[in-house]
Design a protein around this nucleic acid. Sequence first.
DNA 1: ATGGCGTAACCTGTATACAGCTTGATTTTA
DNA 2: TAAAATCAAGCTGTATACAGGTTACGCCAT
Lengths: 232, 232
Amino acid sequence: MVKLAETAIAVSEDETGAERFDRIYCELRDRICLLTYPPGTVLSEVALAKEFGISRTPIRRVFHRLEFMGLVAIKNGVGTIVTDIDLKTFKQIYDLRKRLAEMMGELSPIEITPDHIKTIDDLVKRTRDLADKTGAFDELALIANDLQQLLSDLTGNAPLCEITELMYYRVARIWYTFLPQFGWDKAHAGQLNELEEIRAAMVDNDIRSVGHYRSIDLQRMLTLLGRLLAEP
Amino acid sequence: MVKLAETAIAVSEDETGAERFDRIYCELRDRICLLTYPPGTVLSEVALAKEFGISRTPIRRVFHRLEFMGLVAIKNGVGTIVTDIDLKTFKQIYDLRKRLAEMMGELSPIEITPDHIKTIDDLVKRTRDLADKTGAFDELALIANDLQQLLSDLTGNAPLCEITELMYYRVARIWYTFLPQFGWDKAHAGQLNELEEIRAAMVDNDIRSVGHYRSIDLQRMLTLLGRLLAEP
DNA sequence: ATGGCGTAACCTGTATACAGCTTGATTTTA
DNA sequence: TAAAATCAAGCTGTATACAGGTTACGCCAT
């Protein structure tokens, strides 16, 4: 059973409409990214409406947002289907993300605060604690999500931040699909290595290097993947 | 009276739902970008529903898309308001667009076809014909839109193409706001110059230079704007 | 047995009534 | 007179019934 971040959050009584929209949107987005809904899954408006105790209308709004994010395809008369990504597009997005990562340090960089350091320290610790927990890929994925969130906070150029997140969530589930094939030790070591590189750059208040390391790690991922696909 | 591209297009009888959505979306997007609906305008769901002869539901879908594109802000109980952009965000987007333009030639560049040359030739001609038509800023804007469309066609990396367009439309109306302040001759000469530079690069089948010139012109725009804002 | 057709089940799309929110004008009250 | 409360108008948000599209199953004819 996949543990979802939002599951534990109690729904407040006086939740506003926009808040509820965000809550459900993030919930479904995470379910897709963590493969609770693997590619090809048909999502039902009525079923989800019932689950969240509302009508189809707000669910449809969330669906259209997910469609715009590229996570689902809405087909009239058929259903709303979790999308898959072909390898060519996957590589294109990774190439793009590498460039966007480099830009993080170059376009309106911001100051790194102790809070940021605290966050990255926490992520490093969480990852270290997973060392012997072979196969906990879902927890690795949650850490990756939080790292992306941290990098977003470090991105001073708001539109750059926005499209970086867009591209991250668009391929997150595909990355997650391949993760187990790398083997636990390699996957875990890779994540830990990236976190520690980024942490070191953050301690030096060197955002440019943060982006640089991120970019290198994306390339590393591409290389690993290429090797994996070439072998069999 | 602003001449809109879609206005002349006859609505086909057997138009599918998705086609109608695109048609209305493009129509409203252009109205916003060409300042038919200047920033601050309150758009009415019922009025537009009546204009297009449909109910509020599909109009609402278009509104939510426009909101996601950053062109309107939907406020419960108030209305759907055409957004404005502060100068800081404007500059951030231009900085970003400069980088994205450079990438066009570097990420999966495509071959330039005679059709592409034909399109740019046409744009150059249209611009030349405007030389003595002082004050035809709206036609200049339509040409700028078509140029952006052409550059999208030349972008092999699909996600890059997508976010480039996103950023273009987000600031297009702001650019259009400042255009008259440059004076007709300067605005017209600038546009023509960009088109001819890009055309020359295209004839050489040199996409990298196409992106480079685009980037340079975005910088030129920023410089002009900075001078304009510094003077008074 | 098999090919084609019709139909039922299920999906999204649309229209519409109603609820909830915001705002500003109007009325009431100190 | 001024300030506060009230109300009305207009907006978006939600729920729901119905329309339209797609698919797959089953039936029938060949």
